[in-house]
Every structure is written in C-alpha cells, then in structure tokens.
Design a protein around this nucleic acid. Structure first.
Lengths: 145, 145
DNA sequence: ACATTTGTAGCAGTAACTGTTACAAAACTA
DNA sequence: TAGTTTTGTAACAGTTACTGCTACAAATGT
C-alpha cells in the first residue's frame, strides 16, 4: 500500500502548534524545517486542518498558524478524518462477475466489513487527545488510554 | 491512498474455494472470471495464501487449488496478514529534524500508535471466520460478532 | 510602496499496484 | 513417450496516488 504520510505529518504539525503557537503564530516555513519537507506540503496540509476547524491561519507579514482550540479538546480521530486517508483496504477495481453467486454478493459484505473496521479505528483514536501526544513526546512515555 | 485491493480479492477467492473446492480443485482461470481480472493476478495471490497455509495448489492437467482447512477454521485476520497490506498509515518519508524537540521524539510515538491501531484491527478481524463471510454472502445478512 | 506569508495551480519524480504476455516446470492422459 | 493442461514466475506497460518543487496571486502588516 502506497499509504499516505498525511496523518503522521498532521500529528507532527499539530504537536508543534500545541507546543508553540500559544505565544505566536507559527510560519509554515518553520514547521517544514522540523518535519523536514517543503513548506508547500505543510501549507496544503494546514488547509485541510483549517477546514476541519482545528487551526487558524493568517496571511501577511506577521501571519502564520495557530491551534483553534486547546490540545486537550482535539482528539486523534478528528485529525484522522481531517486528512481523510481513505479506507483501510480497497474494494475490487473491476466489478466482480454478477453471474457468480459469490461475485454477485461479495461487494456488499466487503463494504460492511470496511465500515466495521473503520469504526473500531475511530473508537481507538477518539480516546487519544493531541495533549496526550504532546505529553508522550515530552516525557518519552507511551500513550495509554 | 492507493491502497491495495488484495485483501478484498483474497476474501473473494477464498469464499469461492470455500463454496466449491470441497468437490474438485478450482482453476485460477475460473476464479479470475468471477473476480473479473487476469488469471495471473489470482495465481500471484494464491501463492501468498499458500505460504500462509490457507490453500493448496497442484500443477498439471487436473490441477487447481483447494482450501487447506475448513472455512470455520480460517479467520479474517489470517487472511489479512497473509496478503500483508502494510500499515494503516505511513510514517514520515524523510526523517524529521532531530534538532526540534518534537521532531526528535515523534517517530517513536507514531510508531506505537501504528501498532496500537493494528492491534484493534486484528482483534476485530479475528472474530470473523471465512464461514461467516460465506454465510453473509448466501443469506444477504450482515456479519455480526 | 514594500516586505512577508498564506493559498493554490501546475508539473516532475517516485513508488506501488494491476493487468498482460511469455514461458518453464509439473502432472496427468493416452 | 508425446501431448495437453495448469501452476509458478519473470518481465514489462499503464495507471494512480503521493511528495516535492517552482511560481505567482492575494492578503496583511510596516
């Protein structure tokens, strides 16, 4: 799976904002340096996070980005959904043969399974807050729910 | 995410084998027709399933593939691991800056989170058997654990 | 006016997966 | 033994998605 790094980077970005943005707006350039990527990649990601009402950005000379709410009030599921990394597994590319009893009905079963797995991921992620992540980063202890 | 269809196709293939292979070995060509893809794609997948001891194949004129154990004895986690669809989300491509306190420690936090999510998926999948899938396909009822 | 920063379009490079052809190896049939 | 069938595997083209980059308009403060 050529799965996306967006969720990982989003957590990284938000952790930086949680740690520093209460004092001043943080520039995409500075975030990019910590993440070790291009500033445009960060700005693209920040657009998604803005749409999810997790951060606010401001243009101009003194511009930058800050968290829109307290790190305790942001859970990892919100972040996950904000960057919409798609499903855990993909369904058939080509529609299965409708002549085969199995092919005819498997799609609906797989679709339900997909949602089922998605739900357990959500249940897990919702228990962790951005503040928990920051604590784990600062103390070196693992998160536990 | 360009995620793989392999898990979905694997379930499809195994459901066909569960339904039909007790009577005779099933050819990759016939499976491919139901899945609506090329026979080589199916054979590649069957190789993985063989390595996981889920199916047995035989070359030659009367060859084909059949399940290696009863559909009740195969759970979806075994199938998921057999086709190893990678992780739910990817970690950073480029190593984060080790000069930034967040960048320095985030990788280990994310890695733990990855394993954490992987574990809940496993817990969920392990509760469903291939027989459950076949029942859902044949009755139209959704699987519940 | 000028400098700075976000927002966004557009493109190249990379990586992964699917689909296809081709053919060797194995196993049965006659 | 010769011929047929099927798996196993290599090799390659096409597609898709993501990342990284350049460029520039729009906004904002000095």
């Amino acid at each position: 799976m050529a799965s996306s790094t967006q969720f990982a980077v989003a957590i990284h970005v938000l952790a930086i904002l949680a740690k520093y943005s209460s004092e001043e707006m943080i520039k995409s350039e500075d975030i990019a340096e910590s993440v070790n990527t291009n500033a445009v990649v960060i700005r693209r990601l920040l657009c998604n996070l803005q749409q999810a009402n997790l951060v606010v950005s401001q243009k101009g000379a003194t511009g930058g980005t800050r968290l829109m709410k307290d790190a305790k009030e942001i859970n990892l599921n919100e972040i996950y959904r904000a960057v919409s990394p798609g499903d855990v597994f993909a369904l058939h590319r080509q529609k299965p043969s409708q002549n085969c009893p199995v092919g005819k009905n498997i799609e609906s079963v797989l679709c339900h399974l997909q949602k089922d797995i998605d739900a357990v991921i959500e249940e897990k992620l919702i228990r962790y807050s951005l503040a928990d992540v920051l604590t784990a980063i600062e103390t070196g202890k693992t998160m536990s729910n």
